Simulated assay, not measured.
Amino acid sequence: MRASEDQLRAMMIGGLAGDARAYRDLLDILAPLLRAFFGRRLRDAAEDVEDLVQETLIAIHTRRATYDTSRPFTAWAYAVARYKMVDHFRRRRVTVPIEGLEDILVAEGFEEAVSARMDIDSLLNTLPPKQARAIRETKVDGLSVAEAADRHAMSDSDVKISVHRGLKSLAARLGLS
């Protein structure tokens, strides 16, 4: 069944009001729309489309109270879908260690990158190891706070505090505060 924005919005509002039939119909209509949405964007990862559809339907269900009934429903639903897709890409991030990167960069004329890396290393070495590690992993290596916390059996808050205190200390050292 194809539904208009007004019909989808009415089903969502009905579902929020307790109409189980309207809500079930909404989810049934959303599933193929989401399959098409993800299918267009993940052509080389078709096996992930159904997982993303299910994750998005669950997210829509668990976050349905955040839907502003005065706003278009499809924009809200597709925003949830986009966030799920971004999370999917973050989980699939692949890193490849390159041994001797500095030598390669110098040979290719990127001495500034090597120099910047050495500057970062020397600055981070002035901090307590916990703060330096938290800054390196979250700000330099690109890990999320949760990933850095998991890596060292720390809480997310502990990582955030370590990053904040370390950056504050570096700013004071460099006369930026």
Score class of each variant (00 low, 15 high):
1 M>T: 11
2 R>W: 13
3 A>C: 12
3 A>I: 06
9 R>C: 05
10 A>P: 04
10 A>Y: 06
12 M>L: 10
12 M>K: 04
13 I>H: 13
16 L>H: 07
18 G>W: 09
21 R>D: 14
24 R>W: 00
27 L>E: 09
29 I>Y: 06
30 L>Y: 11
30 L>I: 01
30 L>S: 03
31 A>G: 07
33 L>I: 01
34 L>E: 01
35 R>V: 00
37 F>A: 04
40 R>M: 01
40 R>E: 08
41 R>Y: 01
45 A>V: 00
45 A>G: 01
48 D>G: 07
48 D>S: 11
54 Q>A: 11
56 T>A: 04
56 T>Q: 00
57 L>G: 03
60 I>T: 02
60 I>Y: 02
63 R>F: 02
63 R>H: 15
64 R>E: 08
67 Y>P: 00
68 D>G: 08
70 S>Y: 08
73 F>N: 03
74 T>V: 10
74 T>S: 05
75 A>P: 12
78 Y>A: 01
78 Y>L: 15
80 V>H: 07
85 M>L: 15
91 R>Y: 03
94 V>Q: 13
95 T>H: 14
95 T>Q: 15
95 T>W: 13
96 V>Y: 10
106 V>D: 05
107 A>Y: 05
113 A>Q: 09
114 V>N: 08
116 A>K: 13
124 L>F: 07
129 P>T: 08
131 Q>A: 00
131 Q>E: 09
133 R>C: 02
135 I>D: 06
137 E>M: 12
140 V>L: 10
140 V>M: 11
141 D>M: 06
142 G>Q: 06
142 G>I: 12
144 S>A: 09
145 V>D: 01
145 V>L: 06
147 E>W: 04
149 A>P: 02
152 H>V: 15
155 S>H: 13
156 D>G: 14
157 S>V: 13
157 S>T: 14
159 V>T: 09
159 V>S: 04
160 K>H: 11
163 V>P: 01
163 V>F: 02
163 V>S: 00
164 H>C: 14
170 L>W: 07
171 A>G: 08
172 A>T: 08
172 A>F: 11
174 L>C: 13
